[in-house]
Design a protein around this nucleic acid. Structure first.
Length: 469
RNA sequence: GGCGGCGUACCCAAGUGGUUAAGGGAGAGGUCUGCAAAACCUCGAUGCAGCGGUUCGAAUCCGCUCGCCGCCUCCA
């Protein structure tokens, strides 16, 4: 059985069949660049990074598009606060985003289009809607009439009447229906604008994704993704616009990742618990964060905690230590991965990207490989090491060779503690000397001293190695 | 009010009808070690919020109860 994906549109797991054989077209809603990215973004980003990697592993030629929303109310507001321009704000946070995604070890999408670079496409899409009677003007604004689109609510399973009953937003009397949303907004004094058939203005939030996904992927395309919160209204509105314009479905499968809370609370500015990606990566390996997210299913809501992240870090190190042992015993000679193991991995991942099960399998194999290595049976080990590496790699957890991973970790720890490797090495040698002379008390004293600095010693057959815990 | 989700061992977390309920972390005991560390071995829920029901058989399906949460408004 092949890949099965939970489709928000149907509410069920469905067999994945690409629209064009051997090819997958994937669109994921990116970020609005008005602020630094936080852990919640990281979860969404990592979810789709793993999906992207896995689809590629399956042999699909994947076109992955993830946009930047670089013009909207929040960006403009921020610019006004800082006496800057929307353009400058967007530019700054796009640069920060790129730094974060590199630090997280994300693969680059095929395309990263920006809304402001697709104004022509947006305008022509709105005109098309106008021609079909699926847009109406109110002064300099253009709205989409939701009542005119029969399928409105099909993604979020909402009925218009119920939405309106629950609507607590102020009703704009100029709109035909309170749920109608802006395709184009007239710009006010001091706001960025583009010339258009409706005067000077800027695009509404939803239309950019419709315009850009169609441009780069066509319509329909295979998979549209994003955070759970985007189901309504963003994705619902995208569907309405795009399908009203072209009379074919927008996307075949809709994938949404679950939300992340922090210490049981929703992340929000007012609670002051917004945790930036950079804050975490300052003291943790990106692989730890990735493993943390991978240890629960992408659709489950998750609660972020420092303890949880620490546990995940421990797990990642366990994997890397095993791989390091594997390398040293079998050499780096590339054996072909043991097929049966890859098959097992594939079965787990094929079930709606079940990464918790995939991780369970990996830990199972880590244990059995360690046993094999303990017994000194290196003959059958190399293909297992290779398989383990492959699995970990597909999940994006193996970003470096194991040795490089530990070096990176050591360097950062020493920097944060203000220690130099020379001092550590000196103490290790001093202890070795004491050990050779069987002055155990002195040796143990040094070890305790190092332990207090967060450094653990391992006396192995090949000499003493030190690790950062 | 409408729609949806969740409650599995000390903690995290898979599993949605059928062998002994994955895996990780923490913990306990052991092997190894001068002692450690790492690794390995062993142990750990007779039970899956509670109560009923369906079934030859349920954590898994149905009903009720309790508790928690999300969305319906910008939000990954």
């Amino acid at each position: 059985m092949g890949l099965r994906i939970y489709n928000t549109l149907s509410g069920r797991k469905e067999e994945f069949v690409p629209l064009r054989e051997g090819e997958v077209r994937l669109y994921v809603c990116g970020v609005t660049v008005y602020n630094a990215s936080h852990v919640g973004h990281a979860r969404a980003l990592l979810t789709f990074d793993v999906i992207y990697r896995y689809l590629k592993f399956l042999g699909f030629r994947v076109t992955f598009v993830r946009n930047f929303t670089d013009v909207d109310d929040k960006i403009i507001q921020r610019a006004n606060q800082e006496g800057s321009t929307a353009e400058a704000i967007a530019k700054r946070y796009i640069a920060e985003f790129r730094r974060d995604s590199d630090a997280l070890g994300l693969l680059s999408p095929t395309q990263e289009p920006k809304a402001t670079e697709h104004i022509a496409e947006i305008i022509s899409l709105i005109r098309r809607l106008e021609e079909k009677g699926m847009a109406y003007r109110v002064d300099g604004d253009v709205y989409f009439p939701v009542q005119a689109f029969p399928g409105y609510g099909k993604l979020s399973r909402k009925r218009l009447k119920e939405l309106e009953a629950g609507a607590r937003v102020e009703v704009d009397a100029r709109k035909r229906d309170p749920m109608d949303f802006a395709l184009w907004k007239e710009s006010k004094e001091g706001e960025p604008y583009w010339e258009s058939p409706w005067g000077r203005g800027r695009p509404g939030w939803h239309i950019e994704c419709s315009a850009m996904s169609t441009k780069y992927l066509g319509q329909p395309f295979d998979i549209h993704g994003g955070g759970m919160d985007l189901i309504f209204p963003h994705h619902e509105n995208e569907i309405a616009q795009s399908e009203a314009a072209f009379d074919v479905p927008l996307a075949r499968y809709w994938i949404h990742n679950g939300f992340l809370n922090i210490n049981q609370e929703k992340m929000s500015k007012s609670l002051g618990n917004v945790l930036g990606i950079q804050e975490i990566l300052e003291h943790r390996e990106a692989e730890a964060l990735r493993h943390y997210f991978l240890s629960s299913h992408y659709r489950s809501p998750m609660d972020f905690s420092e303890e949880g992240l620490e546990e995940a870090a421990t797990g990642v190190e366990r994997i890397y230590e095993t791989l390091e042992r594997g390398d040293s015993l079998t050499g780096l000679a590339a054996a072909s991965p043991e097929r049966a193991l890859i098959e097992m991995f594939r079965e787990e991942m094929d079930d709606d990207f079940n990464t918790p099960r995939a991780m369970a399998l990996i830990f199972d194999k880590v244990r059995s490989l360690n046993r094999l290595l303990d017994e000194g049976k290196s003959d059958g080990a190399s293909s297992r090491v290779a398989a383990l590496k492959r699995m970990v790699e597909i999940l994006g957890l193996l970003q470096d060779e194991p040795q490089a991973f530990f070096e990176r970790k050591k360097r950062r720890w020493l920097r944060l503690q203000g220690l130099s490797p020379e001092v550590i090495e000196g103490l290790v040698q001093k202890r070795d000397q004491a050990r050779r002379e069987k002055r155990w008390q002195e040796a143990d004293k040094i070890r305790v001293q190092l332990q207090e600095k967060g450094i653990t010693l391992e006396d192995t057959a090949g000499g003493t190695v030190w690790r950062v815990r």
